[in-house]
Design a protein around this nucleic acid. Structure first.
Lengths: 212, 212
DNA sequence: TAGATTGTTAATCGATTAACAATC
DNA sequence: TAGATTGTTAATCGATTAACAATC
């Protein structure tokens, strides 16, 4: 029932789409869904949907399809959404503020447990009960709070330095918004979300559109 | 010299890293660089670097390596960074404000030419000379300004509707921050940058780390 | 020259697509 | 039962890695 092989990034991305569709179905009161329905909703062939679900240990029934509730649980467990993970945010500029005030954390099973910045004018301000702390406190707070992941929303110039601090403090995962390839030891996961890179990727993709 | 085959997404992502390394090299005054150097800096094998550059029409010399300036120009042209593209932003919440005030646009060859929101309290406010306009103006402004791309930084619930409006207005590319699979006609490019999906991907990746 | 480094083809690997038997 | 739909293997496709001749 639990996956053992590493899922490809592409698979994971598709599965996130499946989860979205399934939740819509549940909201509409449907109990079952076929691979064809899922596929059509997310722009993927039914075969690919089945292949993806097969990797997770399949749960469908011929003629009936998949149980919506069961599949939602399965995907949530694959993504680890029901495991609470403490995360900290480093960098409280425009982007940091937008992140801190967003509602994305819960939905992915994270608790935003601390915010850090080096600017003395920003330290002490904050979101609700959460106050921005001085960068120097990272090590101690990560340890004492049991924080396992960190977000880097700082300028690119200091991103690697921040990554080192986080890793030293024992963090196992980094969500990186800086357009910098971070060098981290094995066993530490980095997920890049650089807006700059995203925009360049869009620019590149546009070229083929205009060529037609 | 100009690429004709579609580059894989993975290739493009790697090439963005190469460009970063090359720009650092130029800043340090280096004129040449080998595939081994590039590879080491970005965590890719020299063979892969050469293979990627080969796809673009290679420009290196045995025993010397690649000319830094030449390669920067080549990559900038591959990404289309020197072609100015007008883009508009829809949704001026926390994320929209962070985007509008960022410096990412120029660097990817975009000019942020208009901002839209439906909230009357927000319309009229703005960044520098740019004022937030009413959502109803999208169609007219996109046409009159010659805007070719749009950013969706709205709640997920209205993202598809906004996409339809943008596409109808003639936009060819969408940078989508909403955690929704957008359905667009062929010939329109969508680049997803949903933070919610990114965070779930991180959560999934963390599972394997903690399993070890 | 000698040898480091590229250009480019070949081999491997993995992911996607197709096919179809199993089954409810 | 009949036939729609899954589970699962096989075939195809593409990307990555390896290899090595070409070359500066």
């Amino acid at each position: 029932m639990v996956e053992n092989k590493q899922l490809s990034r592409a698979s994971v991305l598709r599965m996130e789409l499946y989860l979205d569709v399934l939740q819509q179905c549940r909201a509409e009161g449907r109990h079952n869904i076929t691979s064809a329905d899922i596929g059509e909703a997310v722009g993927v062939s039914p075969e690919s949907v089945r292949q993806d679900l097969f990797k997770l240990g399949t749960t469908g029934k011929p003629m009936v399809g998949y149980e919506v509730d069961k599949l939602i649980s399965l995907l949530r467990s694959v993504f680890g959404l029901d495991t609470l993970k403490k995360i900290c945010l480093v960098g409280y500029g425009n982007l940091g503020r937008a992140l801190a005030n967003s509602n994305i954390w819960d939905k992915a099973g994270f608790e935003l447990a601390a915010i850090f910045d080096k600017d003395p004018n920003v330290v002490g301000t904050g979101v609700g009960p959460l106050k921005v702390r001085n960068l120097a406190e990272v090590f101690g707070v990560v340890k004492s709070e049991g924080i396992v992941a960190g977000v880097i929303a700082t300028p690119a110039s200091v991103a690697q330095e921040i990554a080192n601090i986080l890793v030293n403090a024992g963090i196992k995962a980094i969500w990186n918004f800086a357009p910098v390839k971070l060098h981290v030891p094995e066993g530490v996961v980095v997920e890049n979300q650089s807006l700059a890179w995203g925009l360049i990727t869009l620019s590149q993709a546009m070229k083929s559109v205009f060529k037609e």
